[in-house]
Design a protein around this nucleic acid. Structure first.
Lengths: 147, 147
DNA sequence: GAGACTGAGTTCGAAATCCGAACTCAGTAG
DNA sequence: CTACTGAGTTCGGATTTCGAACTCAGTCTC
């Protein structure tokens, strides 16, 4: 008996969709070009029933779409939608974090700025001030202006 | 039969720590200033045994630290470490995403640049080029230079 | 100094999830 | 006719999660 909307409840909603061990990995696989059921299955080592359920949910929330790619035996594949692609900043942030802080894994991949190959930094950008800034200068503002 | 290291396996490792319905919410609560067991409990509506286990794990992975804040009855609270704070870009990315794509939740909170109050944008930053850029210009580079 | 309260957990059984392995079903290839 | 594919579904058992109630040390109130 609860569930009153907290400031920032949106993220709760999001995590209810994407906040399990697999969904983000599925998005990641999607970004890597994986589309077919069995390929997701093999790539992630996810159990089939779970994959079925997860894909269905991600489709329902508009992150993947189920597209027929063949008629004779009717076959569908799963493609990231625009909303799905838009999750990539979050993914990148997680990859960056794991590179920096995750112990015990040799990060054999680094993210770079494609044109020049320089390792990227992630920052927030204020259009008014024309500056980048870190997490310390971020603040949440509610409709009624509460901190 | 499995578990060979994929490019970007670091994120798997990270999601094993942080990729459940609660951990990210706990970090978020930490960022909002919540520190005590019962407060986490009330704020998130998480079951107590799960909270116990989750906090223990997050401490083990260096995201929270358990700090004694009182002696008489010995009491501990949980504070975000630097590594924990460093998760905020990922959090912000998720909040931004939910603001933009999550249906059915009125986002009553927006993230802004604290000094000026302008709504923030999230971008990647290349130190060499002195530019910001979006996800399209991001590329992963392995130790051996594979795409 | 007896009773109520607090904060930080534990213990418990019931319910929901996850897993691996085997099965289905339509169509295709030889 | 048999073998194979891709995309699932069905199954029983193992693991997690849940809510509610209990513990335990110390404190506060009278």
């Amino acid at each position: 008996m609860n569930q009153q909307v907290q400031p920032g409840a949106a993220i709760e909603e999001t995590l209810r969709v994407v906040g399990d061990r697999w969904s983000i990995l599925l998005v990641r696989a999607g970004l890597r070009g994986i589309r077919r059921f069995d390929d997701f299955c093999d790539d992630l080592g996810i159990a089939r029933p779970v994959l079925t359920e997860r894909l269905r949910r991600l489709v329902k929330f508009g992150i993947f779409e189920r597209v027929k790619y063949q008629d004779k035996p009717v076959r569908y594949e799963y493609r990231l939608t625009e909303a799905g692609l838009a999750l990539s900043p979050a993914l990148v942030a997680l990859v960056r974090w794991s590179e920096e802080y995750s112990q015990e894994v040799s990060s054999e991949t680094t993210l770079v700025h494609a044109p020049c190959g320089t390792e990227l930094e992630q920052a927030f950008w204020c259009r008014s001030c024309q500056t980048t800034f870190g997490p310390h200068a971020v603040k949440g503002v509610g409709v009624n202006g509460e901190s």
